[in-house]
């Protein structure tokens, strides 16, 4: 009986010892369900769906087979109740599109920095004139990527349901035509368990 007591005590110590704080690296691509708030898995699902849909849409396939059009990303309007960094979503979408080799991008957020660099190259006298970038050679964007991100939240006593809808549009700047659009819907629920009270 004493042996059994020691075994139980030992086992309990081993289990309780696991409660100490520990740090470990995790898989950044794993499914994350810590809370119902917007998370990495939602971001990754949105990016995958949007880029796959854009690159396989027949009229876009036709255009990108012949050339690599230039586009720019406008803002994604965050209409959800959460604080979400929508620029992070568009950054990932842009990176995936660029890496596909199908489109090229101009970055409107860096216009000021580029202007300053031009000024420095042409007016500071420090830069060799033969190597300065020629002003007025930027390529104008042909398409604009923009969208909305909204959510519907419903709560009952022990249940919370969140529905996210991410909409992305591609507008042809010259004609104003929306050449492509798609949506990604995500639904998550959380339920407070009996032991979690």
């Amino acid at each position: 009986m004493h042996g059994l007591k020691y075994f139980v005590c030992g086992l309990s110590i081993v289990i309780v010892a696991g409660c100490a704080t520990s740090v470990k690296y995790e898989d950044a691509t794993k499914v994350e369900t810590t809370t119902t708030d917007f998370g990495s898995t939602d971001l990754q699902q949105i990016v995958n769906k949007m880029v796959d849909s854009l690159l396989t849409f027949p009229p876009i396939v036709q255009v990108t087979n012949e050339r690599r059009p230039v586009m720019f990303v406008n803002t994604i309007k965050n209409k959800t109740l959460e604080h979400i960094d929508t620029e992070s979503i568009t950054d990932s979408i842009r990176t995936k599109i660029v890496r596909s080799g199908k489109f090229r991008f101009v970055d409107m957020t860096k216009v000021d920095a580029v202007e300053k660099q031009f000024e420095f190259q042409s007016e500071s006298g420090v830069v060799n004139k033969a190597t300065t970038a020629t002003f007025g050679q930027h390529i104008g964007a042909e398409y604009m990527l923009y969208g909305n991100f909204s959510s519907i939240v419903k709560k009952a006593e022990d249940v919370q349901d969140i529905y996210y809808k991410f909409t992305l549009n591609l507008m042809h700047l010259e004609t104003g035509i929306i050449e492509w659009a798609d949506e990604k819907e995500i639904r998550k629920t959380s339920e407070r368990s009996l032991f979690g009270r």
Binding site: K30, V31, T41, Q44, N48, L55
Partner: peptide, 18 residues
């Protein structure tokens, strides 16, 4: 990334990737 999927009883589903 790993993508979560729900497959209901006896349901068939297609998963697509590009």
């Amino acid at each position: 990334a790993w993508t979560p999927v729900i497959l209901y009883g006896k349901e068939s589903k297609s998963l697509q990737g590009v």
